[in-house]
Amino acid sequence: MRVGVNGWMDVGLLYSKKPNPDDESLQSLMFVFYTYLDIDELKSPTIPTFELQSLIYTPSTNLAENQNVIFTCIGNVGREPQGNFSWYKYVGSQPSGMVITNGINPVSLTTVSGSCTYMRTEKLTLNLTKEDNQMVIRCTVQQTTISEAGDRYIQTDRITVNYSPKINSILADPNLPTYSEGPVQLMLICKADSNPLSNYVWTRPDGSKQTGYQLRLRLLTTNHTGRYTCLAYAEWGGQNYTAKTNVDIEVGKAKERKEMTLICII
């Protein structure tokens, strides 16, 4: 056997037939057969490194609380025994991810031609909550290394989750059951939790309006008595989402000051 400079092998195969007893010469019939083989065909297929090709999610914009989002991870998971995908969710500033075990739906596992490896496609469905705002989803290949990084991983950027305003309460400062007329200042503060941040509109008892989360009442009179309503609103996807609450304020007449005359008798 000789290996040529062009990468081909010259293989000589010697075959011998049994002597033919009817052949007076009793000579064996010998022949040599030569063929050529591509030396690359004798090499073992290379084992590619684990490769995660893509991680996408749909829908990808204007995501909102209570909405279902489908994440799709595609990647090479090696040869037998092929690896699996593990999913992790990172929320806020937590240093470690939470393993996701629900909502996983394997779609396909196909062989990769010429490499004896497998390509895996898997989907994950999540129902979003407001706590998922700014989360990161990671897809990992787990075969020889079982960890949050696995043998390879791919992850999303931080994902924005929108949610409607929720007003917990209105703060009155000072907080009194009844206010008296006079040079007293009353501050009403309305704060809502939402993403994006809320805008605010106050409605006074007389129907007049004022924007901003604070409403300042100066020089209280009985005309300030009534119901004050706070409306919080946030907009995304071309729609407004609102919440409102109210507080009742009562302002009474100031007590009359009675003058007293003190007489000192010596």
Rank of each mutant, 00 (worst) to 15 (best):
I167P: 07
S60M: 11
M98A: 12
T145E: 14
N199W: 02
N102T: 09
D10L: 10
L37T: 13
Y90L: 15
Q94H: 15
K255Y: 01
M1D: 15
A192G: 11
F50C: 01
P21N: 09
L126C: 03
S115C: 12
I159F: 04
I70H: 11
Q134G: 07
L63M: 08
V77Q: 00
S180R: 14
L215C: 01
W202T: 04
R158D: 01
W87H: 01
S164L: 13
W87A: 00
I100M: 06
Y34N: 03
G114W: 10
Y163H: 11
M260W: 14
G12K: 14
Y241V: 07
S180A: 12
Y179I: 05
R158C: 01
N133Q: 08
E65D: 10
G103R: 07
N76C: 08
S25Q: 06
P174I: 00
T261N: 15
L128H: 11
S208A: 01
Y228K: 02
S113W: 13
G237L: 08
N105L: 02
N84E: 00
S113I: 11
N168G: 11
Y241M: 07
L262I: 11
N127C: 09
C116V: 13
C230Q: 10
N168M: 11
K18F: 15
T111P: 04
L215S: 02
Q142M: 04
L126R: 03
N66H: 13
L171M: 04
F85W: 03
V141I: 02
I146C: 02
G238Q: 06
I104H: 04
K253D: 01
K253N: 07
M30W: 12
T111R: 03
T35S: 04
T129G: 13
N240K: 09
K17R: 15
P174D: 03
R218P: 03
K258M: 01
W87F: 05
R138P: 12
C116R: 15
G252W: 14
G150A: 01
G4T: 10
I159Q: 08
Y241E: 10
S115T: 14
N199D: 06
E122N: 05
V247R: 14
T211Q: 05
N168P: 11
Q27K: 13
L109N: 03
G83V: 00
M98K: 14
Y118T: 02
S208C: 02
P177W: 06
E259H: 06
V112N: 09
W236F: 08
S54H: 04
T225H: 01
K258Q: 02
N84L: 00
Y15Q: 12
I263P: 07
K89Y: 07
N162G: 05
K253E: 07
E256H: 00
L126M: 12
D157W: 12
M1F: 15
